[in-house]
Every structure is written in structure tokens, then in C-alpha cells.
Write a protein that binds this DNA or RNA. Structure first.
Length: 257
DNA sequence: GAAGCAAGGACCATTACTTCA
DNA sequence: TTTGAAGTAATGGTCCTTGCT
């Protein structure tokens, strides 16, 4: 009953901005790596399952005007038919009767979970180390025969294994980003502190007449001058800087203060 | 060559079952 | 013995590519 999926969504959203996100080396070069899909459509990764009814078959429904359920059910039936056919052929390939007995049990509640043996898991892991995807098809068939499993089971195992790998990597990346964030926060705090100190130092070293409210006397960061002291120094010692020299921190977002 | 369609494969989110503390 | 959490096999949906017509 794990809520891995939900957690994963938020993590993926965070990491979609991170170019270091693990690209699954899709040995099947026909398919795009998953990250390419996630990266540019974070809303998709956040969508709940109910929000996903907008593509493929469902889109066709809206065109035809019929209820989406009708078409989707029909398509599921077609798909199921296809799967049954492939499973039938797979059964012919399968050399063990063990699996077929399980299938009979399945008819009771629709799904019974097979636990892979240690040896099977080890062999699958070994295969996964070599290639994270089953390519070509022959490999799946061979592996299935070797493990005395159905090809579909091998396929599913690889899918789940890839998902697990990705989840682990995502968690690692997430930890790394958290650490980065902490470091940046500390750096930010340090810089703010430093700035305050510099400001205080500046005020204490200025002659008393310079210690006027900032609104009346402001230093221009570009020319480092306070007002126009050269021209009017004799008559008016203190003047507010002319407009171009008046520093407005709000119109200059790059300024730290 | 372009368009439409079906099949197949990969990925994803989710479900449901098993195991274990 | 019960229960909740974690692990994981299995399912269903979507998207994309490929091959055929």
C-alpha cells in the first residue's frame, strides 16, 4: 500500500529542473528517455491518475461524442484479447507447469502474486546489470525459459526494476539538492551578515555630517559619489544626488540590499 | 511520398498481495 | 494474533515508433 507514487511526483517535479537527473539508458533507441517527457511537462508528473484521461483513446471519444467509458472498455477488451493470445503463445513456450497451476489459482480472485525465488532474482539482477532493458525480444524469451517464467513476467520484472532504480536515484539526487540548498542558505546568511557589518563600518567611519538619513543622502553605487559635491560644494555642501545618480534598490533587483 | 492504422514496446501511476517487525 | 509499513509483482493507461496498406 505504499504511497511511493505520490512521493515520487513531488520529487520528480523538483528534479525536473536538474540536468543531472539520471537518464535511463534506453537501450531501446526507439523510445525517448522518460526524463525528456517529465522534464518539460511537470504538470503531467503532478497530475493525479484521474487527470490523465486526456490522451490517446480518450481523445478519440470526445471526437466521436460517445461516452469515454464505452470506447475505453472496448479498447481494453481488444487489448485483453491481444494479451490472452500472447499469453497463450507464451504458455506454449513455458516449460514448467508450475506457472500454469498458479494461473488456475488466479481465477479465484483475479490476481495472485508470485514470489520469485532467490535464484531467479539473482539471475534477473545479473541480466539487468548488463542491460536495463530487454532488447532484443529474444533476450526476454531466453531469460524466461531459463528462469521458467513467462516472458511477460520477465518483462514486468524489468519494468519494476527500472522504476526502482529510478526512484533510488531520484532520492539520491533529492538528498544532494537538499544539501546544495543548505549550503546556499548558509552562504546567503553569511553574505547578509557581512553586508550589515560593512554598512555599520561605513557609518562609523564617516564624518558626523555625513551621517544623515539615507533618503536625503544616498551614495550612487555606480560612481561612488554622494550627490554632486564638485560643482556646488562651495555654496551648498550637501545636496541630494541628481536623479540619474539616485540609487533605488527596488528598481535594481540585482542589488543585495 | 504522405496519411491512416494497428501492433508492439516502454514508461508511469496505481493496485493488490506478501512479508516482517 | 493483529496490524501497519515496506517491498514488489501485476495491471491499466498513455505515448511513441515502426511497418504495412
Amino acid at each position: 500500500m505504499g504511497n511511493h507514487g505520490v512521493c515520487n511526483k513531488s520529487i520528480v517535479l523538483e528534479l525536473s529542473l536538474n540536468s543531472s537527473m539520471v537518464e535511463h539508458n534506453s537501450t531501446n533507441n526507439t523510445n525517448k528517455p522518460c526524463s525528456s517527457r517529465l522534464k518539460f511537462d511537470p504538470s503531467l508528473t503532478l497530475a493525479l491518475s484521474g487527470d490523465r484521461d486526456h490522451g490517446g483513446l480518450y481523445r478519440q471519444d470526445s471526437v466521436s461524442g460517445g461516452g469515454s467509458s464505452l470506447i475505453s472498455v472496448a479498447s481494453v477488451c481488444v487489448k485483453r484479447e491481444r494479451e490472452v493470445k500472447s499469453e497463450e503463445s507464451e504458455k506454449l513456450i513455458s516449460t514448467t507447469s508450475e506457472v500454469e497451476e498458479d494461473d488456475d489459482d488466479n481465477s479465484v480472485n483475479g490476481r495472485k502474486k508470485l514470489r520469485l525465488t532467490k535464484a531467479q532474482s539473482v539471475l534477473l539482477e545479473e541480466a539487468f546489470k548488463h542491460h536495463s532493458t530487454l532488447n532484443p525480444q529474444k533476450q526476454k524469451q531466453e531469460l524466461a525459459r531459463e528462469l521458467k517464467l513467462r516472458p511477460r513476467q520477465v518483462e514486468v520484472w524489468f519494468q519494476n526494476r527500472r522504476a526502482r532504480t529510478k526512484l533510488k536515484q531520484t532520492e539520491v539526487d533529492c538528498e544532494y539538492l537538499k544539501k546544495c540548498c543548505e549550503v546556499l542558505k548558509e552562504e546567503n546568511t553569511r553574505l547578509h551578515k557581512e553586508l550589515q557589518e560593512l554598512k555599520a563600518l561605513k557609518l562609523s567611519t564617516q564624518p558626523p555630517y555625513m551621517q544623515l538619513p539615507a533618503a536625503t543622502l544616498t551614495m550612487c553605487p555606480s560612481c561612488k559619489r554622494i550627490g554632486d559635491t564638485t560643482s556646488s560644494a562651495t555654496t551648498r555642501p550637501f545636496t541630494v544626488a541628481p536623479k540619474p545618480h539616485f540609487f533605488n534598490p527596488f528598481s535594481n533587483p540585482s542589488a543585495t540590499c
